[in-house]
Computed example of a mutant assay.
Amino acid sequence: MQPFVYDGLPSRVVFGQGTLAQLRQELEHLGCSRALVLATPQQQEQASRVLELLGDKGVGVYADAVMHTPVEVTKRALQVVKELNVDCTVAIGGGSTIGLGKAIALRTGLPQIAIPTTYAGSEMTPILGETSDGIKTTQRTLDVLPETVIYDVDLTLTLPAVMSGTSGINAIAHAVEALYARDCNPVIALMAEEGIAALARSLPVIANNPTNVEARSDALYGAWLCGTCLGSVGMSLHHKLCHTLGGSFNLPHAETHTIVLPYALAYNAPAVTEAMARIGRALGCDDAAAGLYDLGRAVGAPSALSELGFSVDDVERATEIATRNPYWNPRDVEAKGIHRLLSDAQSGKRPQADSGGDQ
């Protein structure tokens, strides 16, 4: 066995059905009494219910979180934090809302409680991605890791089927890249394979029966595992491409990850044969890249970046941005191969092993 280093991240996880009822107790566990509830405009009503649960320990709702955590939105939220003398944030929603909580924590040191309603996984990571002037940048620091995460299966029952599928495959992306991360270790490898398998078996069930509690529980369990992978080891090509497409082209986060993942994996396939075998085993197929593409079709996800508004003419600029600054990847990141990868993803062509290569 190769030598490795494993750092366990200091998060408290509360998992189950009906666990939202423990929110006030968890706030008291942190020693906080003036919580601001964060949400997107679409989840303002849900945020208001959370505020009611908090009683006199809740001071208000800020429901202006948006995709890719724009710095200007964070600045407005910080003004509310100051005006209400907030001592904790409670983020309910997906990656957009949890990202805002992290951005506030980075600038204030305030503790966070994250209540995910999707399978994004951001709640388990010390990673913050922010967008400014059309460029999305990321940083990794324990200053943005939520202190407490409440997973309540009941909150996912109303997540639309297609959104469940794309959110779940977004989570799978974290585990896929963790399996060939430069700093992967045996603990994370076990979590990654288990997380992929849990989501792969539950997402098609949810697509056909969104209120299946067993499948929802399995998917949320898988999302927790995959999020832990994302928070524990480094990522590479896939996440770099998706940050480029999200930050510079404003493509939706989960859908973009869902479409790009099979192509990024096919590009890296020659350099990650062991990871390919583990991913294929978790998916129950021989070709991991094709298996991920087929999973997307099984859950009704979009199959091409063109469906998200990414045009053929955008491929050149995206390639330039994605290859501008060097970053680690198990296979060399070459402009010609990345251009081909993005072209295939733009058109939705079925991926083949080494589809991003220079053959």
Rank of each mutant, 00 (worst) to 15 (best):
Q2M: 08
P3A: 06
V5P: 04
V14S: 07
F15S: 06
G18V: 00
E26M: 07
E28R: 01
S33T: 04
R34H: 07
L36P: 15
Q43L: 12
Q43N: 07
A47M: 06
R49C: 01
L54P: 11
D56C: 12
D56R: 10
K57N: 03
V61Y: 14
Y62M: 10
D64C: 05
A65Q: 06
H68W: 15
V73Y: 09
T74C: 08
R76I: 04
L78W: 12
V81N: 13
K82F: 08
L84Q: 01
D87C: 14
D87S: 11
G94T: 14
G95E: 15
S96M: 12
K102L: 08
I104M: 13
L110P: 15
P111F: 11
P111N: 13
A114C: 12
G121D: 05
E123H: 05
M124W: 10
I127S: 05
E130D: 03
G134T: 08
G134R: 01
T137E: 15
T137G: 00
T137C: 05
L142H: 14
Y151P: 00
T156G: 03
S164N: 10
S164G: 04
N170W: 14
E177Q: 00
A181V: 03
E194W: 06
G195V: 06
A200G: 02
V205F: 04
V205E: 05
A207C: 12
N209E: 12
N212D: 15
E214Q: 11
A215Y: 14
R216H: 06
L220G: 02
G222D: 04
T228Y: 01
G231H: 10
H239K: 13
K240T: 04
K240S: 08
L241D: 14
N250T: 08
P252M: 13
P252K: 11
H253L: 15
H253I: 09
I259E: 00
Y263E: 13
L265C: 03
A266C: 08
A266T: 13
Y267Q: 07
A271M: 12
T273L: 08
T273E: 04
A277R: 12
R278S: 00
I279L: 01
G280P: 07
G284A: 02
D287V: 11
A288H: 07
A289V: 01
A298N: 08
G309V: 02
G309Y: 01
D313Y: 00
R317V: 12
E320G: 14
I321H: 04
R324D: 15
P330E: 07
V333G: 15
R340Q: 04
S343F: 09
D344G: 12
G348S: 10
K349A: 15
G356P: 06
G356W: 02
